[in-house]
Design a protein around this nucleic acid. Structure first.
Length: 852
RNA sequence: GGCCCCGUGGUGGAAUGGUAGACACACCGGACUUAAAAUCCGUAGUUCCGAAAGGGACGUGCCCGUUCGAGUCGGGCCGGGGCCA
């Protein structure tokens, strides 16, 4: 019999599905809807194993839901704006547009080779004018409803590349590309008011029951809600206004030993204007950049302004006012009071500048008169001490008392503060969506009128000089003010690419719509029922998309607040690492494994095998999906990605594993091919017993288990159940024809979402004229899933002593009789005294006895 | 430092508080073959007793607890990873 020709078969079925438009989603359907979405790829040029794993999982769910009778939306698009295209332009002289679309074409071809059940009619790229034009319209709508503003902000500025850098692009204080020392600069930037939804973005997390707990916690931490007090310190004998601070620990106010201002605090700016030393200190602080991690780990440095602050509860108590590098302008008010005994950063600072460290919270176990703080601040619970009217209270009561007193005097207010900052969306780059705004000397900021949209990127830009090509373009930014017609200047910033990916799922509902989002279609499809992607997007992308959905709701584009009802974060794809004797990384393709170890192909030089790590170019432990698909076909690589390892964990790619998958593909093909004399399709099953009945039971148990496993994304278990059915078919041998047909049809149907081409081929070989993608999911017969008799373990005092076979509903007394008659039980009980008999129906029987 | 996740054979991993190791990979033995590949059959946690058939003990990172019964639940450690500091 001919072996299964995967290449040939896959090509054929892909073109059949394509010709029949098998995976088109209907916007009008009476079927239940299922929106299955994987995070869309950046068009880097070729797909990698991570894509294969991600899209295979999504495809299995999409095909499974389709077979179960759902109207499935499973689309694909391209997250196509971004810096790599500009880098390619600088390095290779190719235009970002040409580079990007060529990459998309190449990757589309590779994804199609995977045989994904995608509605390609809805495909788009975020760099398509049709898409970013609508994004500009959304921006104007957000502007209209008050969710957009422009403000000065601290940014990481690369003085060589003339651009703003994200925190992740600053490495050891230097620009990741130029290597120049990054400066902190104040620039006018565009912001989305994500903080106005902060409370709701936290509160709604509890309702996302089909999200991983881990992601919900990460988002909660990221938003960082904290309750505290806002109050002021007056300055003694100074003209300057009082310093307003925010603190979550107002209970420790009597332990205060200094007040500290952010280097970016307005008061500091004023003081620095007439104090060159302070100005120099501020400049020094700015060199740290804006990354919190850098600020946290840097040495705590301060500058004594000479000002003296007055304690809010004691007019005679003065505190020094410092400028400190660890105080962030963006958090709270940009000013704090320092209580060294109960805050580690304050303690580090106090030790450096020899300021008092007075404990005011004493743990229950310690003695208030002797309790002292060494090099570790005490942040735990306890009783207040050295704190006048707060003495003896616990921390929570003291906070409440402080709040009541301050609010009573009108000197402070309870405030909720967030770690989350508003979203800075402007980037000084070319390959992004232009922000549709005009700057006019007379009118200020003027949104581009909708009739003038889209603001299209110019094609004739140069990348041979540093800086923003839009800024450098000779004419593009010159425009008349839409409001007063005077000469004005176009905004040359483009959007952060996270904006592009914050609403694409809503566009998929209707990619032809004139409006950014077809509300009726979006109301039908949203929320996404199952979203799948890498955990690295747990915070930013998923938080931005949740914000955007709320903003779109407010602007009238959608009716939901949450974009993704179900979220699944899949693990990475790993591979062993290899090094030669000189310590150079070696690619898996150059390795040959022998019984005595790994060697380099050709030369036979010894190779050291290292641990399995995430596939990365730098470690050369990358296996190209194309090569695998070329050798074994798409079904084999898909089957591998689903087998053995639970989907949320990291999977290790191995050549042996891939070969094992390939053998199973062939085995199914052979099982179907070897099945001689099958009765025609639809032949009813008559009276059966013995091996035929056993096979039939195995078939229906497989349906039952695989259905449940796929519904819960337990792909590895579903795979194991299919192997079991294959083993059962092999064991059963040449039994009743109709039963064998049922078993074979079942294994083909159950494996179809995972190995769709193989399934289609064998479905046809079994005599079906309807495609398997148009065939319904099998149903398990409960009578056959249930067992007539079951084997249960017999224990004495919890130790296994034997096994008996009983009916699932056998009476306890009957089971007890059987158990007590077992020789092994009798032997064990010979020196013991019977106490009681425990029987868990269908599970276990346990004789409890004590030593006589 | 805080919070969260994980720790099971040579390997990936199964296991609603109920017979630990399903299923797969690798290894080994056998059949088929001139040979190899492919395929099929088989053994396989550790250890002890036994010629064998069998039988016993131990076993899910470590310790303690709850329970008739713990990989699973609780407490405390150790190790690995993640997030936030």
């Amino acid at each position: 019999m001919a072996r299964y020709n995967a290449k040939e078969s896959e090509r054929i079925w892909q073109s059949v599905w394509d010709g029949k438009q098998s995976f088109r989603a209907e916007n009008n359907s009476t079927k239940p809807k299922a929106y299955v979405l994987e995070m869309f790829p950046y068009p880097s040029g070729r797909i990698h194993m991570g894509h294969v794993r991600n899209y295979t999982m999504g495809d299995v769910i999409a095909r499974f839901r389709r077979a179960q009778g759902h109207n499935v939306l499973h689309p694909m698009g391209w997250d196509a704006f971004g810096l790599p295209a500009e880098n390619a332009a600088r390095e290779k002289g190719v235009h970002p547009r040409a580079w990007t679309y060529a990459n998309i074409a190449a990757m589309r071809g590779q994804l199609k080779q995977m045989g994904l059940a995608i509605d390609w009619s809805r495909e788009f790229a975020t760099c398509d004018e049709a898409y970013y034009a609508r994004q500009q319209k959304l921006f104007l709508d957000f502007f209209r409803v008050g969710l957009v503003y422009r403000a000065e902000a601290d940014v990481n500025w690369d003085p060589v590349d003339h651009t703003v850098l994200a925190n992740e692009q600053v490495i050891d204080g230097r620009g990741w590309r130029s290597g120049a020392i990054v400066e902190r600069r104040k620039l006018s930037q565009w912001f989305f008011k994500i903080t106005s939804f902060a409370d709701d973005l936290i509160g709604a997390l509890d309702g996302l029951s089909r999200w991983p707990e881990k992601v919900r916690i990460m988002q909660k931490n990221w938003i960082g809600r904290s309750e505290g007090m806002r109050f002021s310190f007056a300055l003694r004998g100074a003209r300057e206004p009082a310093i307003e601070v925010f603190s979550t620990r107002a209970d420790t106010l009597f332990g205060a030993s200094f007040v500290a201002l952010s280097p970016d605090h307005p008061l500091v700016q004023n003081l620095a204007a007439r104090d060159p030393k302070l100005a120099a200190f501020v400049a020094e602080c700015r060199r740290l950049g804006t990354a919190e991690e850098a600020i946290e780990t840097a040495e705590k440095l301060g500058y004594d302004t000479g000002l003296r602050a007055v304690h809010p509860f004691d007019d005679s108590w003065e505190l020094p006012v410092y400028v400190a590098n660890f105080v962030l302008m963006g958090y709270g008010t940009g000013a704090i009071f320092g209580c060294p005994a109960h805050d580690q950063r304050d303690l580090d600072f106090a030790r450096k500048y020899t300021l008092p460290v007075l404990p005011v919270v004493v743990p229950e176990s310690a003695d208030a008169s002797t309790f002292a703080v060494g090099n570790e601040a005490y942040t735990g619970p306890g009783r207040l001490a050295n704190s006048r009217f707060l003495d003896g209270m616990d921390v929570e009561s003291a906070k409440a008392e402080m709040a009541t007193r301050m609010e009573g005097k009108g000197t402070g207010t309870r405030t909720v503060n967030y770690r989350l900052r508003d979203w800075l969306v402007s980037r000084q780059r070319y390959w992004g969506c232009p922000i549709p705004v005009v700057h006019c000397a007379a009118c200020g900021i003027v949104p581009v009128p909708e009739k003038d949209l889209p603001v299209v990127l110019p094609e004739d830009v140069r990348f041979d000089v540093p800086g923003n090509p839009l800024e450098l373009h000779p004419t593009w930014k010159q425009i008349k003010c839409p409001s007063c017609s005077a000469d004005a200047r176009r905004e040359t910033d483009t959007f952060d690419t996270f904006v592009d990916s914050s609403w694409y799922f809503a566009r998929f509902a209707d990619t032809e719509a004139e409006a950014p989002v077809n509300k009726d279609a979006a109301d039908y499809w949203l929320p996404v029922d199952q979203y799948i992607g890498g955990v690295e997007h747990a915070v930013l992308h998923l938080l931005y998309a949740r914000f955007f959905t709320r903003a779109m709701h407010r602007a009238g584009h959608v009716s939901v607040d949450e974009p993704f009802a179900g979220l699944f974060t899949q693990g990475m794809v790993c591979h062993e690492t290899y090094k030669d004797q000189d310590g150079n990384w070696v690619e898996p393709a150059d390795i040959e494994k022998r019984s005595d170890g790994a060697v380099r192909k050709g030369t036979g030089a010894p190779i050291a095998v290292g641990p399995s790590e995430k596939m990365s170019k730098s470690k050369k432990n990358v296996v190209a999906p194309e090569a695998i698909i070329d050798t074994f076909g798409a079904d084999t690589i898909r089957w591998f990605m689903l087998s053995d390892t639970p989907p949320e964990r990291d999977i290790e790619w191995t050549q042996e594993g891939a070969e094992g998958c390939w053998r199973f593909v062939q085995r199914i093909h052979r099982l179907v091919g070897e099945a001689a004399n099958l009765p025609p399709v639809g032949t009813p099953i008559g009276q059966i017993d013995g091996a035929a009945l056993e096979l039939r039971r195995a078939t229906h148990r497989a349906i039952d288990a695989v259905t449940d496993d796929l519904a819960n994304l337990r792909f590895n278990r579903a795979v194991a159940r299919i192997y079991e059915l294959a083993n059962a078919i092999g064991t059963a041998g040449d039994t009743d024809g109709a039963v064998r047909r049922e078993a074979l049809e079942t294994i083909v149907l159950l494996s179809a979402p995972m190995m769709p081409h193989l399934a289609e081929t064998n479905w046809q070989r079994l005599g079906h004229s309807v495609l398997i993608v148009e065939s319904p999911w099998p149903k398990a017969d409960a009578m056959l899933v249930r067992r007539d008799t079951i084997k249960i373990g017999v224990q004495v005092n919890g130790k296994l002593r034997g096994e008996i076979e009983v009916a699932p509903d056998a009476e306890k007394a009957l089971v007890e009789g059987m158990v007590m008659n077992l020789d092994s039980v009798q032997r064990d009980l010979s020196d013991k005294q019977f106490v009681k008999f425990v029987y868990v129906p269908g599970r276990v029987a346990n004789v409890v006895a004590k030593i006589a």
